[in-house]
Nucleic acid binder design. Structure first.
Length: 215
DNA sequence: TGGCACCTCGTCAGACTTTC
DNA sequence: GAAAGTCTGACGAGGTGCCA
């Protein structure tokens, strides 16, 4: 209003109609107990009270503009921080090296910290700010508040010893279930495939349980 | 969780005020 | 008296709190 000296023009500058602006002015008049702006032949002139308020209001608006509305843009080239990534064990060997290689060129001051936690705990870690990103299969995060993007499709394969009779060809599900198995369970976590078998009430003949995937 | 009442804030239309 | 601008009442949309 001080800048435009007109209810209509001030409203237009704020993308409001004149009545809306007039109503806002009426509310301010009631709250401050002063007309603030009075009609004259040369527009809406400020009262002494309005002029007195102009400087502190200007400072408040400037503070809001700088500290609230104007957020610093993220610049990978100069950013210096550690990103925490939730990823399964395989992610540490597949994803993290690629991320580091990319960061070395485009974000040289960025560091990556890998975190291996359960699918159920990933959502909470992200919500609490303990982690920045989760790479892997996290069906529990398919809900509002989380952004998801498919990066790739994955499939499972069977690993057998070099002289195993099934070294060639494919397996039927019955043949697969008749075999004995080595179960890789890092840090005691339940593998996605195990969860699938459990949901189907299928039990494997597990002869060995390992915490690391054999080289 | 859905329905309801209430409040806030917006627009529209028309009355009103001021100035020339 | 005309023109420009402001004010006001009616009404609608959306948000919120309460209650069954």
């Amino acid at each position: 209003m001080l800048q435009h000296q007109s209810v209509t023009r001030a409203g237009h500058a704020l993308d409001l109609s004149q009545p809306a602006m007039s109503a806002a002015l009426a509310k301010m008049r009631a709250q401050l107990g002063d007309p603030l702006f009075v009609r004259t032949g040369h527009g809406m002139r400020p009262t002494p009270r309005a002029l007195q308020l102009a400087e502190p209001v200007k400072r408040i608006l400037e503070m809001v503009r700088l500290d609230v509305l104007q957020q610093p843009a993220f610049d990978p080239a100069t950013a210096s921080r550690t990103f925490t990534v939730i990823t399964p064990d395989i992610g540490e060997t597949v994803f993290v090296p690629k991320i580091l290689a990319y960061a070395q060129t485009h974000a040289p001051r960025i560091a990556i910290r890998s975190m291996a936690i359960s699918s159920e705990g990933a959502g909470e870690a992200l919500e609490l700010g303990l982690a920045d990103l989760a790479i892997g299969y996290f069906p529990d995060l398919a809900k509002p508040g989380f952004y998801q993007q498919r990066l790739f499709k994955n499939s499972f394969v069977c690993m057998v010893r070099a002289d195993h009779p099934r070294i060639r060809g494919s397996l039927t599900s019955d043949e697969f279930l008749r075999e004995s198995h080595a179960l890789v369970r890092p840090a005691g976590r339940t593998h996605l495939f195990e969860q699938f078998l459990h949901s189907k009430n299928i039990k494997l003949d597990v002869r060995a349980e390992l915490s690391h995937c054999p080289a």
